[in-house]
C-alpha cells in the first residue's frame, strides 16, 4: 500500500531538511538560554521599572501566537534596517520566543533557592552580580534542566512554523515534496517519523543528563 521506493527516494532531501531543523533548534535554544541568563540576571538585580519591562516582554511572548511573533520579526527586522536571510530571521524569531520562557525558568529557579544563601553571600561581601554568578547560578543548572528540555521540545516544534516564512526546514520540504509529486500519505508519514525521532532522541539524551548531573 505504501510506496516504499518513493519514501527511500525522497529520504536524502528529508534528512537534509531535518538537519536544518536541528540546526535552527540548537542555535535558537542556545541564544534563548543566553538571553534568558542575561535578562534573568538583570531582572533579579534591578529595580521595579526594569522588572516591569521584562515582565511585559515575557507576557508578550506568552500571549501572542508564535506564528504571529514570527511574522512580526519577519516584517519588523527589515523595517528597522536589519536584513537577514530566512534562516537567520527564523533563528532570531525562535530565540525571541524562547527567551520569554527561559527568563522565567531561570528567574523562578533562583527564587526557589533558599534565601539564606543570598544573605550569606552578602555577608561575605559579594555584590548582587557576583552572588548570582558564583553562588546561585551554579546551583540552578540541575534544577532548570527539566524545563529546558521542555523548551527544547517547544523549539523543535516551533521551528516547523518557520515554513511559513520559507525557511527550508522539514515542514517546508515536506510541503514542497507533496506539491511536487502529489503524494500525500508517504511524505506526511516520513515527516512525522522524523519529528518523532528527533524529539524522542533529544528527550532521551536530556533525561540521561538529568540523571547524570547530581550536585
Amino acid at each position: 500500500m505504501l510506496d516504499i521506493d518513493f519514501m527511500i527516494e525522497i529520504l536524502p532531501r528529508v534528512l537534509r531538511a531535518s538537519l536544518v531543523t536541528l540546526e535552527i533548534s540548537f542555535l535558537s535554544l542556545s541564544f534563548s538560554i543566553l538571553l534568558g541568563l542575561a535578562f534573568s540576571m538583570v531582572a533579579l538585580t534591578s529595580g521595579k521599572f526594569v522588572n516591569i519591562l521584562i515582565r511585559c516582554f515575557v507576557e508578550f511572548t506568552r500571549g501572542v501566537p508564535q506564528l504571529v511573533q514570527i511574522s512580526i520579526i519577519y516584517f519588523a527586522l527589515p523595517y528597522i534596517g536589519i536584513f537577514f536571510d530566512e534562516f537567520w530571521t527564523g533563528v532570531v524569531a525562535l530565540s525571541f520566543i524562547g527567551a520569554g520562557y527561559t527568563i522565567e525558568i531561570f528567574r523562578n529557579a533562583v527564587l526557589n533557592i533558599n534565601k539564606g544563601q543570598q544573605e550569606a553571600g552578602k555577608i561575605l561581601g559579594f555584590s548582587n552580580y557576583q552572588n548570582l554568578i558564583y553562588i546561585l547560578y551554579p546551583q540552578i543548572i540541575k534544577r532548570s534542566l527539566p524545563p529546558i528540555t521542555n523548551e527544547l521540545i517547544n523549539v523543535v516544534k516551533a521551528s516547523a512554523l518557520l515554513s511559513v516564512i520559507s525557511v527550508n526546514e522539514l515542514t517546508k520540504i515536506m510541503n514542497d515534496v507533496i506539491f511536487e509529486y502529489f503524494v500525500v500519505i508517504e511524505v506526511l508519514l516520513e515527516a512525522t517519523i522524523m519529528y518523532l525521532l528527533i524529539i524522542s532522541v533529544l528527550v532521551y539524551i536530556s533525561r540521561y543528563f538529568e540523571k547524570k548531573l547530581v550536585i
Partner: peptide, 14 residues
C-alpha cells in the same frame, strides 16, 4: 512529539 502544523496539514490532506 509532532508540531501542530504537521497535524493540521495531515487533517487537511488526509
Amino acid at each position: 512529539c509532532t508540531p501542530i502544523i504537521i497535524q493540521i496539514y495531515a487533517a487537511y490532506l488526509l
